[in-house]
């Protein structure tokens, strides 16, 4: 199991993000109310937000280290990112969205990977549609396929189910869990929905006011949720 270690500080206007966590990822959920800093943490891991100071490392690889002046650009981190509104390229069809990250591979490699992903996410019939012609659930599956195409080392999901209706959510949660196990892919996901955290998480990191307040299994972290106890101890699972 690969370890993700994040210890960063970032001033965002009046808000002070000061996150310190180390998790061995299966499926890790960053949980907390809106504005607690969970999305910013995810952006920092992806390299889309540069912390003021601290260190971010995945396994042996250091993405960011202010002490040594290291800041790997997002395009070199090989992480998959699924955005809250999916950010599918509106001018490209499903097929070209999925192959976007691997468009410099040979046509054969692209075709095989495309077929594999279309099958994995049940998108075979939609390959030639444009994002505007897809439902929310379909868009989300395309966004997942696109992020998975270049074989990322870690998949980051920012509130991936928030734009969907309740029934679809249930269905896609199951699918995500299935994918994570099937692909043996570490996932870090942001949510503010308790049921989502309980259903999916191997590890829950609870954030509040820009700080980590608890780390542990979903049951332990979320049961004491009404009265979060602040702790400065770093847990590792």
């Amino acid at each position: 199991m690969v370890k993700l270690a994040v210890s960063i500080q970032k001033r965002l206007g009046e808000f002070q993000l000061s996150v310190d966590l180390a998790v061995e990822c299966g499926l890790t959920i960053l949980f907390g109310p809106s504005g607690c800093g969970k999305s910013s943490t995810l952006l920092a891991i992806a390299g889309l937000l540069r912390p003021d100071s601290g260190r971010i490392a995945l396994g042996e690889e250091v993405f960011f280290d202010s002490a040594r002046g290291v800041h790997i650009a997002p395009q070199h981190r090989r992480l998959g990112f699924v955005f809250q509104n999916y950010a599918l390229f509106p001018h490209l069809n499903v097929q070209r969205n999925i192959c976007f990250a691997i468009d410099r591979e040979s046509p054969d490699v692209q075709r095989d990977r495309l077929r594999e992903l279309l099958g994995l996410l049940h998108l075979e019939k939609l390959a030639h549609r444009y994002p505007a012609e897809l439902s929310g659930g379909q868009q989300q599956r395309v966004a997942l396929a696109r992020a998975l195409a270049p074989h990322p080392r870690l998949l980051l999901l920012d509130e991936p189910f928030s734009a969907l209706d309740t029934e679809l959510r249930e269905e896609l949660r199951d699918e995500l869990k299935r994918l994570q196990i099937q692909l043996d892919l570490p996932i870090v996901m942001v949510t503010h929905t308790r049921s989502e955290a309980l259903q999916l998480a191997d590890t829950v990191v609870r954030l509040d006011l820009g700080q980590v307040v608890a780390v542990g299994s979903a049951a332990t972290v979320l049961s004491s949720a009404s009265q979060p106890t602040r702790t400065n101890v770093r847990f590792s699972w």
């Binding site: 992806a46 390299g47 889309l48 650009a73 997002p74 395009q75 070199h76 981190r77 090989r78 992480l79 998959g80 990112f81 955005f83 509104n85 950010a87 390229f89 509106p90 001018h91 976007f100 990250a101 696109r146 992020a147 195409a149 270049p150």
Partner: peptide, 27 residues
């Protein structure tokens, strides 16, 4: 052009130039 598209391109391994020509310019 919504910067989310450009961010998505970065996370998909594209640098500034490729992102400009493949995403920003077409949009």
């Amino acid at each position: 052009v919504d910067p989310a598209y450009e961010r998505a391109a970065y996370t998909l391994g594209k640098g500034r130039w490729r992102t400009f020509f493949q995403v920003t310019l077409p949009l």
